[in-house]
Design a protein around this nucleic acid. Structure first.
Lengths: 163, 163
DNA sequence: TATTGTTATACTCTATAACTATA
DNA sequence: TATAGTTATAGAGTATAACAATA
């Protein structure tokens, strides 16, 4: 981006050989971090009127799609560790949006269900989320969005296996 | 993904109307979160032998590219708040990889410079980073990578402006 | 008065260990 | 013994407020 002599107006006391590096600003991992932060902040503002955050919304959606699913299943789908999911569900439960019902055939598992108010709040949050989606749509065509998601999915397979 | 009746083997005590939501798993924000986490973990492992983390590497690269730049400039480029950048530079300084040199014409600013050992560590980390890049290249063509970065850049403009 | 850097601190998000109750 | 859920806690990562030094 700039030449090394440009910024060293202190006198260039130290003179180390320049190491050949890639352009970090065009690196996927680097950009991904900023983009994720930007979308996260937008979603935080989007859901602020409900005093709930993105993971709360995601949980409501999943429970709506599969009523009675276990906390284990939900934590796997949301990528949350058990303890963190517990406090997420506690939030929703204290607000009366979700209820835990012990399963009759295996009393270890708590099936999760939306309450009436939970379904209503989810409907309202979904409207708000649609406005968030519209802001994305304004800057990315439907085809680009689909391709982006596909690329992200293949990138997720990376990691873990190294020397 | 599944029908609502399927998971509710507890007896379906609660019966709320199904809210029409989008497929969360194909939402950009949702996938972005997982992908970012996967790449971050891969980078953590990549840099583990150096006992340094991705932001340390990013700082070394930036300082190498623009020796003498200020902490303010660096914090802006890395997207870090001042206090957090200070501790990042403290880490690198304690390890003898980076030095702060007060600028002569404006003694408020600390120009940042790599030391000899700093340049050597950066060279080694850059090799490790190349292997990380190779793992990405294995799953995404150069054209796809370029398009992905461009799409991410336009997404970064989102947020802040809402009712 | 404004800016650079620093300290102290708090909040969010994530992760681990140990426990309970069921199976 | 193994699994679902829970509690307590620790660690990253990120944020704000207040201050010192310099301009």
């Amino acid at each position: 981006m700039r030449d090394r002599a440009e910024a060293s107006d202190g006198g260039g006391v130290i003179d180390t050989p320049h190491v050949a590096t890639c352009d970090l600003a065009r690196q996927i991992g680097f950009r991904l971090r900023f983009t994720q932060a930007a979308l996260w902040k937008d979603l935080l503002l989007t859901f602020r009127p409900f005093r709930l955050r993105p993971p709360h919304y995601a949980a409501l959606v999943m429970i709506n799609d599969a009523p009675g699913l276990s906390q284990q299943d939900l934590s796997a789908q949301l990528g949350l560790k058990g303890p963190n999911l517990v406090s997420l569900i506690n939030d929703l439960s204290k607000r009366g949006l979700v209820e835990r019902h012990q399963r009759e055939n295996d009393r270890r598992v708590n099936g999760l269900f939306l309450t009436g108010p939970g379904a209503r709040v989810l409907a309202q949050m979904t409207e708000a989320h649609a406005r968030h989606q519209a802001r994305i749509a304004a800057v990315l065509s439907p085809e680009d969005r689909a391709r982006l998601v596909t690329m992200l999915e293949s990138l997720e397979r990376i990691g873990g296996d190294q020397a």
